[in-house]
């Protein structure tokens, strides 16, 4: 059974120099999509990513991360659009740093691609009718 989860990884300074994500792919056949990263060698790092694969490989991958000292949290925040509140004006489209919003060519309705969202929260406050909500 394949699963895919969004997780937050905290890297202690001694791990930031290691090719951790490479190992997840190579050794456990997992696929990943990095949503947000702040990793500098010698400093504590942060990586938000979606990690997917078979349940068995996923569990092994998580075990591996824990064994090298990475602290794992499930992603507890989420940005959701209140469809009834959205007026499809477009004020979110150009400010989103990850390109999660786009316009449907024909109707010019604003599409929100949840998978591209890096949960930065900029759209939440910049949305004029306050249709974007940040959940904890």
């Amino acid at each position: 059974m394949d699963i895919s989860k969004r997780i937050v990884l905290h890297f202690p300074p001694h791990v930031t120099g290691q090719p951790v994500v490479y190992r997840l792919v190579k050794d456990f056949n997992l696929n990943f999509n990095i949503l947000k990263a702040s990793v500098s060698p010698g400093e504590e790092g942060l990586l938000i990513m979606e990690l997917g694969g078979t349940q068995k490989n996923y569990d092994k991958g998580i075990q591996y991360l824990a064994s090298v000292g990475v602290k794992i949290q499930s992603l507890s925040q989420d940005v959701v659009r209140d469809e009834a509140r959205c007026t499809h004006c477009g004020a979110c489209v150009a400010i989103c740093p990850s390109g999660a919003f786009s316009l449907e060519a024909k109707t010019r309705k604003v599409l929100f691609d949840h998978n591209k969202c890096v949960i930065c929260g900029l759209c939440v406050k910049a949305c004029p009718p306050r249709a974007m909500r940040l959940y904890f």
Binding site: T87, H88, G90, A94, T107
Partner: peptide, 23 residues
């Protein structure tokens, strides 16, 4: 079109006016 050129730079555009609502 989603992009314009301003002073030679490619700039993404967005609207504050809702075209779907106008339609």
């Amino acid at each position: 079109s989603g992009h314009i050129k301003v002073q030679g730079k490619d700039v993404p555009t967005a609207s504050l006016s809702s075209y779907p609502k106008a339609i």
